[in-house]
Protein backbone atom coordinates (compact mmCIF):
# COMPACT_ATOMS: atom_id res chain seq x y z
CA UNK A 1 0.00 0.00 0.00
CA UNK A 2 3.01 2.25 0.35
CA UNK A 3 3.47 4.78 -2.41
CA UNK A 4 -0.24 4.81 -3.17
CA UNK A 5 -2.14 7.85 -2.06
CA UNK A 6 -5.54 6.37 -2.64
CA UNK A 7 -6.24 2.69 -2.79
CA UNK A 8 -9.73 1.42 -3.47
CA UNK A 9 -10.56 -2.24 -3.30
CA UNK A 10 -13.81 -3.95 -4.12
CA UNK A 11 -15.84 -0.77 -3.96
CA UNK A 12 -19.51 -1.16 -4.76
CA UNK A 13 -21.99 1.62 -4.43
CA UNK A 14 -25.42 2.62 -5.54
CA UNK A 15 -28.66 4.32 -4.73
CA UNK A 16 -31.39 2.09 -3.31
CA UNK A 17 -32.08 -0.81 -5.64
CA UNK A 18 -29.75 0.60 -8.26
CA UNK A 19 -26.19 -0.59 -8.17
CA UNK A 20 -23.85 1.74 -9.98
CA UNK A 21 -20.35 0.60 -9.09
CA UNK A 22 -19.34 -3.03 -9.34
CA UNK A 23 -16.37 -4.13 -7.24
CA UNK A 24 -14.01 -1.42 -8.35
CA UNK A 25 -10.28 -1.70 -7.74
CA UNK A 26 -8.46 1.51 -8.33
CA UNK A 27 -5.45 3.33 -7.02
CA UNK A 28 -3.82 6.71 -7.37
CA UNK A 29 -0.17 7.34 -6.69
CA UNK A 30 1.12 10.57 -5.23
CA UNK A 31 2.07 13.10 -7.88
CA UNK A 32 -0.15 11.53 -10.49
CA UNK A 33 -2.62 13.30 -12.71
CA UNK A 34 -5.12 10.93 -14.19
CA UNK A 35 -8.41 11.04 -15.97
CA UNK A 36 -11.44 8.81 -15.77
CA UNK A 37 -13.38 8.94 -18.98
CA UNK A 38 -16.65 7.38 -19.90
CA UNK A 39 -20.18 8.12 -20.91
CA UNK A 40 -22.79 9.76 -18.76
CA UNK A 41 -24.40 7.44 -16.29
CA UNK A 42 -21.59 4.94 -16.10
CA UNK A 43 -20.51 5.75 -12.57
CA UNK A 44 -17.78 8.38 -12.69
CA UNK A 45 -19.62 10.76 -10.44
CA UNK A 46 -20.76 7.95 -8.19
CA UNK A 47 -17.15 6.86 -7.74
CA UNK A 48 -16.22 10.34 -6.55
CA UNK A 49 -19.26 10.61 -4.37
CA UNK A 50 -18.57 7.21 -2.86
CA UNK A 51 -15.09 8.38 -1.90
CA UNK A 52 -16.73 11.37 -0.18
CA UNK A 53 -19.45 9.20 1.39
CA UNK A 54 -22.24 10.95 -0.44
CA UNK A 55 -23.99 7.99 -2.08
CA UNK A 56 -26.99 5.99 -0.93
CA UNK A 57 -25.07 2.88 0.07
CA UNK A 58 -21.56 1.62 -0.42
CA UNK A 59 -19.26 -1.16 0.63
CA UNK A 60 -15.62 -1.96 0.09
CA UNK A 61 -12.34 -0.58 1.25
CA UNK A 62 -11.04 2.90 0.49
CA UNK A 63 -7.63 3.66 1.97
CA UNK A 64 -6.56 7.23 1.69
CA UNK A 65 -3.05 8.10 2.81
CA UNK A 66 -2.95 5.16 5.19
CA UNK A 67 -6.38 5.81 6.71
CA UNK A 68 -9.36 3.61 6.01
CA UNK A 69 -12.27 5.80 4.96
CA UNK A 70 -14.39 3.20 3.24
CA UNK A 71 -16.49 0.46 4.70
CA UNK A 72 -20.18 0.01 4.91
CA UNK A 73 -21.84 3.24 5.74
CA UNK A 74 -24.32 3.19 8.57
CA UNK A 75 -24.65 6.90 9.20
CA UNK A 76 -26.63 9.25 7.03
CA UNK A 77 -25.41 10.58 3.73
CA UNK A 78 -22.72 13.18 4.06
CA UNK A 79 -22.10 12.83 7.78
CA UNK A 80 -18.54 11.74 7.30
CA UNK A 81 -17.79 14.05 4.41
CA UNK A 82 -16.29 16.92 6.43
CA UNK A 83 -13.93 14.49 8.14
CA UNK A 84 -12.76 13.15 4.79
CA UNK A 85 -12.22 16.66 3.52
CA UNK A 86 -10.10 17.38 6.56
CA UNK A 87 -7.97 14.32 5.76
CA UNK A 88 -7.04 16.04 2.52
CA UNK A 89 -9.49 15.19 -0.26
CA UNK A 90 -10.94 18.13 -2.16
CA UNK A 91 -13.74 17.58 -4.60
CA UNK A 92 -15.37 19.80 -7.16
CA UNK A 93 -18.82 18.37 -7.58
CA UNK A 94 -20.63 18.01 -10.84
CA UNK A 95 -22.64 21.11 -11.65
CA UNK A 96 -21.04 23.33 -9.01
CA UNK A 97 -22.22 23.09 -5.44
CA UNK A 98 -21.99 26.83 -4.95
CA UNK A 99 -23.24 29.29 -2.40
CA UNK A 100 -25.16 31.83 -4.47
CA UNK A 101 -25.24 34.51 -1.78
CA UNK A 102 -21.50 34.63 -1.07
CA UNK A 103 -18.98 36.70 -2.95
CA UNK A 104 -16.19 35.11 -4.93
CA UNK A 105 -13.75 35.99 -2.20
CA UNK A 106 -15.84 34.49 0.59
CA UNK A 107 -16.46 31.48 -1.56
CA UNK A 108 -12.79 30.83 -1.98
CA UNK A 109 -12.26 31.35 1.74
CA UNK A 110 -14.77 28.59 2.36
CA UNK A 111 -12.48 26.26 0.45
CA UNK A 112 -9.64 27.06 2.82
CA UNK A 113 -11.79 26.18 5.77
CA UNK A 114 -9.35 23.86 7.52
CA UNK A 115 -7.49 25.64 10.30
CA UNK A 116 -4.06 25.40 8.69
CA UNK A 117 -5.26 26.64 5.33
CA UNK A 118 -7.32 29.44 6.87
CA UNK A 119 -4.27 31.22 8.21
CA UNK A 120 -2.66 31.77 4.82
CA UNK A 121 -5.87 32.07 2.86
CA UNK A 122 -4.82 35.37 1.30
CA UNK A 123 -1.77 33.66 -0.16
CA UNK A 124 -3.85 30.81 -1.48
CA UNK A 125 -6.38 33.19 -2.90
CA UNK A 126 -3.68 34.99 -4.84
CA UNK A 127 -2.54 31.65 -6.13
CA UNK A 128 -6.02 30.87 -7.43
CA UNK A 129 -6.24 34.35 -8.96
CA UNK A 130 -2.99 33.59 -10.78
CA UNK A 131 -4.61 30.54 -12.30
CA UNK A 132 -7.93 32.23 -13.07
CA UNK A 133 -7.15 35.96 -13.47
CA UNK A 134 -10.77 36.58 -14.37
CA UNK A 135 -11.85 35.91 -10.82
CA UNK A 136 -9.64 38.66 -9.44
CA UNK A 137 -11.71 41.29 -11.24
CA UNK A 138 -14.95 39.90 -9.91
CA UNK A 139 -13.72 39.35 -6.38
CA UNK A 140 -16.66 41.12 -4.72
CA UNK A 141 -19.39 39.86 -7.05
CA UNK A 142 -22.00 37.41 -5.77
CA UNK A 143 -21.38 33.97 -7.15
CA UNK A 144 -25.05 33.54 -8.01
CA UNK A 145 -24.68 36.26 -10.61
CA UNK A 146 -21.60 34.91 -12.38
CA UNK A 147 -21.66 33.20 -15.74
CA UNK A 148 -21.41 29.44 -16.02
CA UNK A 149 -17.72 29.47 -16.88
CA UNK A 150 -16.86 31.79 -14.03
CA UNK A 151 -18.82 29.65 -11.64
CA UNK A 152 -16.90 26.60 -12.73
CA UNK A 153 -13.68 28.51 -12.14
CA UNK A 154 -14.86 29.46 -8.66
CA UNK A 155 -15.84 25.88 -8.00
CA UNK A 156 -12.48 24.55 -9.13
CA UNK A 157 -10.69 27.37 -7.37
CA UNK A 158 -12.45 26.51 -4.15
CA UNK A 159 -11.11 22.98 -4.34
CA UNK A 160 -7.62 24.34 -5.01
CA UNK A 161 -7.80 26.55 -1.93
CA UNK A 162 -7.91 23.51 0.31
CA UNK A 163 -4.89 21.95 1.90
CA UNK A 164 -5.53 18.77 -0.04
CA UNK A 165 -3.43 15.88 -1.16
CA UNK A 166 -5.97 14.62 -3.63
CA UNK A 167 -8.17 16.67 -5.92
CA UNK A 168 -11.24 15.11 -7.46
CA UNK A 169 -12.55 17.24 -10.31
CA UNK A 170 -15.90 16.08 -11.65
CA UNK A 171 -16.79 17.06 -15.22
CA UNK A 172 -14.90 20.34 -15.62
CA UNK A 173 -16.37 20.81 -19.08
CA UNK A 174 -20.00 20.09 -18.31
CA UNK A 175 -22.34 22.64 -19.77
CA UNK A 176 -19.60 25.02 -20.87
CA UNK A 177 -18.82 26.36 -24.32
CA UNK A 178 -15.93 24.41 -25.90
CA UNK A 179 -13.52 27.33 -25.73
CA UNK A 180 -14.18 27.96 -22.05
CA UNK A 181 -14.06 24.31 -21.10
CA UNK A 182 -10.72 24.06 -22.89
CA UNK A 183 -9.47 26.94 -20.78
CA UNK A 184 -10.66 25.39 -17.55
CA UNK A 185 -9.07 22.08 -18.44
CA UNK A 186 -5.82 23.74 -19.48
CA UNK A 187 -5.72 25.53 -16.15
CA UNK A 188 -6.19 22.20 -14.40
CA UNK A 189 -3.38 20.65 -16.41
CA UNK A 190 -1.04 23.56 -15.66
CA UNK A 191 -1.37 23.29 -11.90
CA UNK A 192 1.85 21.99 -10.39
CA UNK A 193 1.19 18.89 -8.37
CA UNK A 194 4.45 18.26 -6.45
CA UNK A 195 3.41 15.23 -4.50
CA UNK A 196 -0.32 15.81 -4.67
CA UNK A 197 -2.61 13.95 -7.02
CA UNK A 198 -5.50 14.92 -9.23
CA UNK A 199 -8.27 12.82 -10.73
CA UNK A 200 -10.43 14.36 -13.44
CA UNK A 201 -13.65 12.75 -14.54
CA UNK A 202 -14.61 13.76 -18.03
CA UNK A 203 -16.77 12.49 -20.81
CA UNK A 204 -15.08 14.39 -23.56
CA UNK A 205 -11.97 12.31 -24.20
CA UNK A 206 -10.52 14.69 -26.78
CA UNK A 207 -10.15 17.45 -24.19
CA UNK A 208 -7.71 15.44 -22.13
CA UNK A 209 -5.97 13.15 -24.60
CA UNK A 210 -2.22 13.30 -24.19
CA UNK A 211 -2.36 15.76 -21.32
CA UNK A 212 -2.64 13.46 -18.33
CA UNK A 213 -0.41 10.74 -16.99
CA UNK A 214 -2.96 8.01 -17.22
CA UNK A 215 -6.41 7.66 -18.64
CA UNK A 216 -8.86 5.11 -17.35
CA UNK A 217 -12.09 4.24 -19.04
CA UNK A 218 -15.20 3.70 -17.05
CA UNK A 219 -17.97 1.60 -18.42
CA UNK A 220 -21.13 0.37 -16.77
CA UNK A 221 -19.73 0.57 -13.29
CA UNK A 222 -16.43 -1.12 -14.11
CA UNK A 223 -13.07 0.42 -14.74
CA UNK A 224 -11.30 -0.49 -17.97
CA UNK A 225 -7.55 -0.36 -17.87
CA UNK A 226 -7.14 1.99 -20.75
CA UNK A 227 -9.45 4.03 -22.84
CA UNK A 228 -10.58 3.84 -26.42
CA UNK A 229 -12.29 0.85 -27.83
CA UNK A 230 -9.77 0.27 -30.59
CA UNK A 231 -7.02 -0.96 -28.34
CA UNK A 232 -9.34 -2.75 -26.00
CA UNK A 233 -7.36 -5.88 -25.25
Amino acid sequence: MSGKLLNIQGLSAGYGPLRVLHEIDFSVAAGERLAIVGLNGHGKTTLFRAIMHLVGWQQGSIVFDGTEIGGTRSLGEGRRTPGIVRLGVAMTPQGDAIFPGLTVKQHLDCGAYTKAAWRDRALRRDHVYDIFPQLKEREQAYVGKLSGGERRMVSVGRALMADAKLYLIDEPSLGLAPRISQRVVDALIDIGLDGRAMVIAEQNVALLTGKVDRMIGMHAGHLRGDVGHVDLL
Partner: peptide
Protein backbone atom coordinates in the same frame (compact mmCIF):
# COMPACT_ATOMS: atom_id res chain seq x y z
CA UNK B 1 -15.46 35.87 11.12
CA UNK B 2 -14.70 32.38 9.98
CA UNK B 3 -17.65 31.10 11.99
CA UNK B 4 -19.98 33.54 10.30
CA UNK B 5 -18.78 32.44 6.89
CA UNK B 6 -19.29 28.85 7.92
CA UNK B 7 -22.84 29.55 9.06
CA UNK B 8 -23.74 31.27 5.83
CA UNK B 9 -22.16 28.50 3.79
CA UNK B 10 -24.20 25.80 5.53
CA UNK B 11 -27.32 27.91 5.18
CA UNK B 12 -26.95 28.25 1.44
CA UNK B 13 -25.79 24.83 0.41
CA UNK B 14 -25.28 22.11 2.99
CA UNK B 15 -23.67 19.63 0.61
CA UNK B 16 -21.32 22.22 -0.80
CA UNK B 17 -20.37 23.14 2.73
CA UNK B 18 -19.68 19.50 3.55
CA UNK B 19 -17.38 19.36 0.54
CA UNK B 20 -15.47 22.30 2.01
CA UNK B 21 -15.05 20.38 5.23
CA UNK B 22 -17.74 22.30 7.08
CA UNK B 23 -19.86 20.03 9.19
CA UNK B 24 -23.42 21.25 9.50
CA UNK B 25 -23.67 19.59 12.89
CA UNK B 26 -20.69 21.44 14.26
Amino acid sequence: SRRGLEIRAVMQNAEGAALCGISSRK
